[in-house]
Design a protein around this nucleic acid. Structure first.
Lengths: 254, 254
DNA sequence: AAGTGGTCTAGACCACGTC
DNA sequence: ACGTGGTCTAGACCACTTT
């Protein structure tokens, strides 16, 4: 390839390059953009590496490197011989991707989400800060319990910007018998990319006692999660308590 | 490259290949082997990609892919213009690599490890299982406290196979004013590659009350960790309690 | 047989660090 | 100026899936 560049921004070999970014990252950004505007939907195949190479006017190897990174980010999934797919929360293996709770003994079974209630409110200071919106912005608050084999183990309170989740209500939640994120993806076109959890130990309060059937004061795991979609935009804040009598939170450190 | 293969195991293109592994993975295994034997020590440079390519009789690109994976595994560290280094726990950024505890407010400061006592014992059922040794095998048990800005926040009990940690005692621990893993690496040639933590919420017992200066019954984070060196060999088991009044456990989910 | 991703190679040039 | 890793390309062939 000669020096006359074609891709936007930076002639990529400029000698003084404060904002230098390699070609494959520019391609990655372009693919990401196409995903954001919904050019390819979760679960679908994207064009082959060769097609994308032609489209973006780069070599197949460069497209490959861009896709490599996106596969590492859990945004795309490669399937040899078939093609590259947009990752989806409807995929059984991705469904409870962010849930780290494992039963003390016995195999891990998928939990069941039981919605308790769901109402409109205005964002307080903390919710506003974590969701990167202004205090007072309309939000939806959802309470639910997560059951493992009929037993309530997790009690969550979930805060969602109403602008994104228009139409979400208790009825819709009760009609859905899969993971929340698969509902969010299917009904609101939202794909969760990453999340951040802050974990503490707390004593069970009244609510927890009622929902999790534990004694008041029982030590519980307090898990606060902010979940991000494309572009690192926060779209969910949840705070929950986990009963860790028969389960534990498993974390792989690498 | 022609069909006459040179590397051990499998002629890599065999049509019936139940144990097929690509060339770059074989190279990765060979480099790993050299690291285990101590051919290059933590913190040192390894030979350049070109040199390794000649040594293993493959192209530079293949060595590169092997090193790419090992860099992703935190085993090697690339430094543009300088070379590729063996990751070391003596590196300030790697020092508390597995510690996920973050202060509620204020910047994260490095903790200080304060050894309490250290004695010989024989492995019980649980220690034996987690360390993959036989019950009764000699082990070393170490108790210590982790202090953040003078305040005791973590109380740990650490179980180590004596065979590997011969000579470890309280004196050595007290003389060391850096992370445990950097001591393990420096004195016992052990590099920790990955770890697994199981987290629960528990009530503070007598020991915790004394060590962490909290009320009896205070909810604490119980963190159990098994740490692995090369070849997924477990070499450390630790169980600790974290006081989460002014700190939280931060976990990135990807 | 054709199409997709996966591996391997060889060569060119760039960016960074050191001498 | 030189050596290192980092990027980009082009082409060959393998492995897997579908037609």
């Amino acid at each position: 390839m000669d020096d006359s560049d074609f891709l936007c921004s930076n002639s990529r070999m400029s000698r003084v390059s404060p904002t230098f970014s390699p070609l494959y990252r520019q391609i990655k950004a372009l693919i990401l953009q196409a995903l954001e505007v919904g050019e390819w939907r979760p679960g679908q195949v994207i064009p082959s590496e060769q097609e994308l190479a032609v489209r973006f006017n780069v070599s197949q190897g460069t497209v490959r490197k861009a896709i490599d990174e996106m596969a590492a980010d859990n945004i795309l999934v490669r399937k040899q011989g078939k093609g590259t797919y947009v990752a989806s929360h409807n995929d059984p293996r991705q469904m409870y991707r962010f849930l780290r709770l494992v039963p003390e003994e016995g195999n891990l079974t998928h939990p069941k989400s039981v919605p308790i209630d769901c109402w409109r409110a205005k964002a307080g200071q903390e919710a506003a800060r974590l969701l990167a919106i202004s205090p007072g912005t309309p939000i939806i608050i959802l309470r639910r319990v997560l059951k493992f084999e009929q037993k309530p183990i997790v009690a969550d309170e979930i805060y969602l910007p109403e602008e994104i989740f228009q139409g979400l209500d208790l009825e819709m939640l009760q009609a859905w018998n899969s993971s929340l994120y698969s509902l969010f993806e299917t009904r609101f076109g939202l794909r969760m990319i990453r999340a951040q959890e802050r974990i503490r130990a707390v004593a069970a309060d009244r609510d927890a006692v009622a929902l999790l059937q534990v004694e008041e004061g029982t030590p519980l795991l307090s898990v606060e999660r902010v979940t991000y979609t494309y572009d690192d935009k926060p779209v969910e804040w949840r705070r929950g308590v986990y009963s860790t009598a028969g389960h534990y939170y498993l974390n792989e450190l690498t």
